[in-house]
Each structure stands twice: as C-alpha cells, then as structure tokens.
C-alpha cells in the first residue's frame, strides 16, 4: 500500500472538522519491534552457537576414534614385528645346525669331489 492511497482512504471514512488536521496516517501493517528483533537475533545466535558446538563435539569424537585406530595399528605393527623376529629366530643357522635333521646328516664329501 502506497502513501497516497492510504491517505485517500482516511479521507473517505472520517468527517473532517474545522481546524482539524485533515491528513492522518495509521498503517495496518504489523511489524516487529526492536525488542522482538533483538530477542530473535539472540535466539538465532544461540542456535548457531549450538550448531557449532554440536559439530565441534562430533568432530572431536572422531579424535577418539582415530586415536583408537592408531593404537590398534601400533599394536598390530608391534605384533607383526614380534612375529618377524620369531620367524627369523626359527630359521636361524644355529637352530638349523642343532636340529634333529641336521644331526642325522653325514659329513660332506672330501674337497674336490663335489660336482655341480
């Protein structure tokens, strides 16, 4: 609604007295006052803050998951290293030399008789 049309409407509905201000304007439009705006802004800020906190907490929770996975990876690496050591020890020359199979072997041929 424009200013001119609302003025025209006022003139039709009201009687105009002498020395009376013939022009008056009363808008029917409902608007929010400054207090409401402030409250809404505060609520919005709170909501945004809450959203931020939710996301940060959620992201930080991944930190624990990552930490768990890293711990698990370290343990697996450690187990792998232990198994590698055990495997190497089981295949060592000393173990082979002292094995039953080695003890049951006969001496090698005299020098110069080995052929390939």
């Amino acid at each position: 609604m424009t200013y001119s049309s609302s003025m025209a409407l006022g003139r039709q509905q009201r009687s105009i007295g002498r020395n009376q201000n013939a022009v008056s304007f009363r808008s029917n439009e409902r608007t929010l006052g400054p207090i409401s705006n402030t409250i809404i802004l505060i609520v919005l800020a709170c909501l945004l803050g809450l959203l931020y906190l939710t996301q940060v907490t959620k992201t930080n929770a991944f930190g624990y998951k990552i930490n768990d996975l890293q711990t698990q990876a370290t343990q697996l690496k450690s187990e792998h290293d232990d198994l590698e050591v055990a495997s190497a020890r089981l295949q060592s020359l000393d173990r082979a030399q002292n094995s039953d199979a080695a003890k049951s072997m006969t001496a090698v041929a005299p020098s110069g008789t080995v052929t390939q």
Binding site: N60, G63, I66, N67
Partner: peptide, 10 residues
C-alpha cells in the same frame, strides 16, 4: 588434546 592427552580432531 583433552585431559587424557587424546588429540582433538577439530
């Protein structure tokens, strides 16, 4: 990190 020393991912 948090109090227990776990790195915070955020």
């Amino acid at each position: 990190t948090d109090a227990s020393g776990v790195p915070l991912a955020a």
